[in-house]
Design a protein around this nucleic acid. Structure first.
Lengths: 241, 241
DNA sequence: TATAATAAATGTAATATTTACATTTAATAA
DNA sequence: TTATTAAATGTAAATATTACATTTATTATA
């Protein structure tokens, strides 16, 4: 067989595994939490060149002895203290010029954490700060794009899976749950319709307790029922609004 | 600031851009076409070690002087002759052991092409063969997983976008269109319901011509109306069945 | 030229889902 | 006791989905 053009990898000639094809492989981590009615994002202020003083996602080079998942989980643990966290890959960014000086592709994953469970001391150490999505600072490189893409994917995910499971505290109120979805979908959701749909999924357990931090009347607390969740969330409609 | 653990990339020490973090970066291409009522996948039989004689997706190393997109488009053009094709990234695979002998991450994109437009001579040259999804051969490495993931993403995509635009010939019949969706969703779709929904989107132009290759009566041919498509497909429901 | 065969084309009623909308209630603070 | 506030709640209309069977156009054949 004769190659008309440059050979491709399905048929690699012996000299194809060449050093000059190697690149840096990084992973960037979009850490999302939910607090006081807003979806928030953990950003880091760099304390070294390049881009010293500027804001960025947290990332790392992927080491040769770890998987992509291990790399992003390492970063997440180092900066939040958390393990066993919901993370999902979004896209890989590999533009020629995306990082000045050296060629580097970056695999992005987003993480959904419970704000009240993360190690704030670590966050401080790493010069990290939580930002509401509507007041993000300028970020380095293509990080804003990464965030936009991740939020779009999160929105799709939220339709099919109760993202609240990951983001809300163990006990939460329906208005809190609703406001989470409002901040994901960036639109108001009618409280009666939200309540109707969520309760119809039959994935929650209502507690006797009330949370009175937001009103005099107080709102009943709920927990997710993992068992019911697994059984009942298969519904086609899910949590689309 | 003192690092308690290994430093991470937001604060890279000078020696961090080290050669030993570099990896091979590949891209694998899932080439999908639609023919005689079946979604089909172009696979390649390797003619060199490693894995000589086995089937695989077509891929390439990403060159230092090209973007990820350019790399996969290069492969697609080399093997099908096609340019300007719908391609979308799925996931990046970077398990430690996914490729024996060297560490390599692979970014996967799928391409939707019109079978009747691709260069069959090239396909032959590259030892390529079209397979129906239900009779795929064993493939090397994690390629089966890549395909499974891509099909899941394609299914979601098909709900929100008329995949037919990319896969069907310029002129097509409604039964043809329906069978495409049946083979994407892997289930039967009621012809009356399909027709009703598709026509309600108002994105097609009905032609006078009939295609009589499948029946004595013949089925009317349609084309996509790109203009209407852009305007009218915003519908929430889309093509979910 | 009549008939058989075949896939294409078509409509409707029942059910389920989504949307829109306003009042009452429980608790606290004044 | 009253005012205030957010939580809780129900219903009707509109829309979307599903289920289902007959007629039609054409060709091939008897």
């Amino acid at each position: 067989m004769i190659f008309k053009k440059k050979p491709i990898v399905a048929f690699p000639p012996k000299d194809f595994y060449r050093l000059d094809h190697k690149m840096y492989v990084a992973t960037d981590c979009i850490i999302l939490g939910y607090d006081s009615n807003n979806l928030k994002l953990l950003l880091f202020q760099r304390n070294l060149e390049p881009f010293k003083g500027e804001w960025s996602l947290i990332g790392t080079f992927v080491h040769l002895d770890e998987s992509l998942e291990e790399a992003s989980e390492r970063v997440l643990e180092q900066t939040t203290g958390l393990t066993n966290i919901f993370m999902e890959q979004t896209f890989t960014y590999g533009g020629l010029k995306r990082d000045p000086g050296y060629r580097c592709v970056s695999i992005v994953r987003y993480a959904l954490i419970r704000l009240d469970e993360h190690d704030t001391k670590l966050a401080k150490e790493y010069h990290a700060k939580w930002f509401s999505l509507d007041e993000l600072p300028n970020m380095i490189l293509d990080h804003q794009q990464m965030i936009n893409d991740a939020l779009e994917i999160l929105r799709e995910k939220a339709k099919k899976q109760s993202i609240g499971f990951e983001l809300l505290p163990k006990k939460f109120t329906l208005p809190q749950f609703r406001r989470l979805y409002e901040s994901i979908y960036q639109k108001e959701i009618d409280p009666r319709n939200f309540r109707k749909k969520v309760l119809s999924l039959d994935i929650l357990t209502k507690l006797e307790e009330k949370d009175k931090s937001n009103s005099k009347k107080g709102a009943f607390l709920y927990t997710f029922n993992a068992l019911k969740y697994g059984k009942n969330f298969a519904s086609k409609a899910g949590l689309d609004f």
